[in-house]
């Protein structure tokens, strides 16, 4: 909430806008926001580093040193959302430098409070969006592409029909053949089914990984870039950042898509396990009908109870070792 009065501008300085070059300079520096993360003041050094282009434009000499020191105070937020606080601080630093000297302290105090408030608010959104949703979503998209790629390679009739429907060509050569200076790239039995029909060529694997990375980074970089200008333009409002996107709506939609994909991926894996089997030698049947479903269900239960999965790994090893004697 904007409670402080606006300060008067010096007659020789007027309202300023952020040039694109300055915005880009803040943007690339914001990539190093956590370069010196510490428990004392968290992202303070990174924040000051990102603010340097603005500060050197507005202040000189002892005022520049004081300005940098101002931004060495405690600051922490989700790294991709830091642009809101950076843009906001840039705007207020410009406002302060254009103000009468006796009014500057009020602007600095306002900046300190708003920076903290915006950082906290955007962190709550960013943690849920990027760490809690986009990160697992990009992984499940990669796995889904692997399943589809595996189908395309090993069930060519299906793939050829689909491709001819869209006017493409499936090709004849299996996708895992490659010749990179003599390096052979055998198909990957990633999930241990041991069946040629469930192996993935390296191109399919790379395609999945790249798709997941692109999904994550296109959105993350857009938020990083857009947030700086948005923070600058919101003119000191403490709700800065909340209105850029309908965050809750976006998170929910992403989760619905991701959840659906995760269910499909897990279901496909389950079908593959029960129809194709698993290559673990002596205990293939036990793995198939007992251990895999039990571990899957136990993990769901453990998460609800807040039990760390590490205990499941230990339990899994112990159970598997004990089963040897059966």
């Amino acid at each position: 909430m904007d409670t402080a009065p606006r300060t008067a501008l010096l007659p020789e300085k007027g309202a300023r806008v952020m040039p694109r070059s300055l915005r880009f300079s803040i943007f690339w520096r914001s990539l190093f926001l956590q370069a010196a993360w510490n428990y004392g003041r968290m992202q303070n050094l990174g924040f000051a580093f990102a603010m340097l282009p603005v500060l050197r434009k507005e202040w000189h000499g002892a005022e520049l040193s004081a300005a940098v020191k101002r931004h060495l105070e405690h600051f922490n937020t989700q790294p991709f959302m830091a642009g809101f606080a950076l843009g906001l601080s840039a705007r207020l630093e410009q406002e302060a430098s254009a103000s009468l000297p006796e009014h500057r302290e009020a602007v600095f105090e306002r900046m300190r409070l708003l920076k903290g408030a915006v950082g906290t608010a955007s962190a709550a959104i960013g943690d849920r969006l990027f760490w809690g949703t986009l990160r697992p979503l990009s992984l499940v998209v990669a796995i889904a592409i692997w399943w589809l790629g595996g189908l395309a390679v090993h069930h060519p009739l299906w793939f050829k029909s689909a491709m001819s429907a869209v006017g493409g060509s499936a090709g004849e050569q299996p996708l895992w053949h490659c010749s990179l200076a003599g390096y052979s790239c055998p198909p990957c039995d990633i999930f241990g089914f041991g069946n040629i029909n469930l192996m993935y060529g390296w191109r399919v694997v790379i395609a999945g990984l790249v798709a997941g990375l692109l999904l994550y980074n296109v959105f993350a970089l857009w938020v990083r870039w857009r947030a700086i200008k948005y923070g600058y333009d919101c003119a000191g409002s403490s709700a800065c950042g909340i209105e850029l996107v309908k965050w809750q709506w976006l998170i929910r939609r992403m989760r619905i898509i991701g959840f659906t994909l995760a269910i499909c991926v897990a279901a496909f894996a389950g079908i593959a396990l029960f129809t194709e089997g698993i290559a673990v030698g002596r205990h293939a049947l036990l793995m198939k009908y007992l251990l895999a479903p039990v571990m899957f269900t136990a993990a769901l239960y453990a998460r609800r109870r807040g039990i760390a999965c590490v205990y499941l790994y230990v339990a899994g090893i112990a159970a598997a070792a004990a089963l040897y004697f059966i």
Binding site: F296, L312, A318, A320
Partner: peptide, 23 residues
Amino acid sequence: SGVTVAYWAVPWIGFSSLIGNLS
């Protein structure tokens, strides 16, 4: 044997984790 079987059980914990995380 236990280590090998436990290793192949890991993805099933992982699938469960994916579903739980994206709920």
